[in-house]
Simulated assay, not measured.
Amino acid sequence: MHFTEAKGILSNKNGMNIYRGCTHGCIYCDSRSLCYNMSHAFEDIEVKINAPELLEKALRSKRRKCMIGTGSMSDPYLPAEKELKLTKKCLEIIEKHGFGAAVLTKSDLILRDIDLLASINEQSKAVVQMTMTTFDDKLCSIIEPGVCTSGRRYEVLMEMKKQNIPTVVWLTPFLPYINDTFENLNGLLEYCAEAGVRGIICFGIGLTLRDGNREYFYAALDRHFPGLSDRYRREFGNAYMIDSANHQSLMRKLDEFCHKYGILQNNECFDYLSELPDKYEQMSFF
Rank of each mutant, 00 (worst) to 15 (best):
G262Y: 04
R214D: 04
Y240T: 06
T105E: 03
I263E: 04
E95H: 15
V128I: 13
S244V: 14
R231T: 14
L188N: 01
E215A: 09
M38I: 13
E53T: 07
K162R: 15
L104A: 07
E92L: 05
K89Q: 15
E81N: 08
T131P: 02
A219W: 02
D113M: 00
N37E: 13
R214G: 06
L86H: 01
F135Q: 07
S39H: 11
M132D: 02
G71E: 02
I201H: 00
I205L: 01
M160R: 02
Y218G: 10
V168K: 00
G212Q: 10
D75S: 09
C192M: 08
Y36E: 07
E194T: 09
L264C: 03
D113K: 01
T4H: 09
D222M: 05
I201W: 01
A245N: 12
Y218D: 08
R234Y: 12
G199P: 00
A6Q: 09
C22N: 04
M160N: 03
G15M: 07
R252W: 07
T208A: 11
L250G: 05
T23D: 07
K138T: 12
I93F: 13
I114T: 04
I110R: 06
L254K: 05
S284Y: 10
K279R: 14
H259F: 12
H224P: 11
C202I: 06
L86Q: 01
S72K: 10
R20K: 15
C35D: 12
A41G: 13
V156D: 03
R32A: 02
I120T: 03
L117A: 02
E281Y: 13
R210V: 07
A195C: 04
L84F: 10
L55D: 02
L84A: 07
I200W: 00
R152A: 08
D271S: 14
K57Q: 14
F42N: 04
I200H: 01
A41I: 10
E194V: 10
L171H: 02
M283Q: 11
S249N: 11
G237S: 13
F203T: 07
L91R: 07
G262K: 07
K85T: 10
E83K: 15
E46C: 13
I178E: 07
K48C: 11
K125E: 06
D222Y: 05
R32C: 02
L86D: 00
I200F: 01
Y232H: 05
L185V: 12
T172H: 11
A41K: 15
N238S: 14
Y232G: 03
H224W: 15
E53N: 09
L86Y: 00
H97A: 11
M251N: 09
F182M: 12
S61T: 09
K106M: 02
N213Q: 08
K7Q: 15
G237K: 13
A126F: 03
E215G: 12
N266V: 10
I120E: 03
L54I: 06
Y240Q: 06
H97T: 09
I94P: 01
G146V: 03
L250N: 05
G237F: 14
D44A: 13
A51M: 09
I205Q: 01
Y28E: 04
S150M: 09
N186K: 15
E275Q: 12
L171D: 02
D115T: 04
K162E: 11
L157F: 01
F182N: 13
F42D: 06
T23C: 08
S72H: 11
V168P: 02
G8T: 15
L185C: 10
G262M: 05
